[in-house]
Amino acid sequence: MQLHPQDNVVVLTRTVAAGERVCVGGVTVMIERALALGHKLAACDIPAGAPILKYGVSIGSAAVPIPAGAHVHTHNLRSNYLPTYLHATQQRYFEEHP
């Protein structure tokens, strides 16, 4: 689902399994890892540093070049405001403070 005509990401409207093929922006891509509904895929090739557009507005910047059809998430999209906290961040704390 594309939420806004200017968006360079699309949103999954259902959960997809690993190995499934989905059509994004005219290209068919294979989903490497299972993705829950609501997750984003690149609708086109996005260069590093370019804004990621969803709802027609920027939701952050591409941290690396993102090929069309790739999962867009915390590994390749950075906030332009505040960093995103993940459990992995806390995991590092426990490793550094045994």
Partner: peptide
């Protein structure tokens, strides 16, 4: 993030 949101501005728009 597990639910597909990546950044605070994305969450904000929703």
């Amino acid at each position: 993030a597990d639910g597909g949101l990546t950044t605070i501005e994305e969450k904000s728009m929703g």
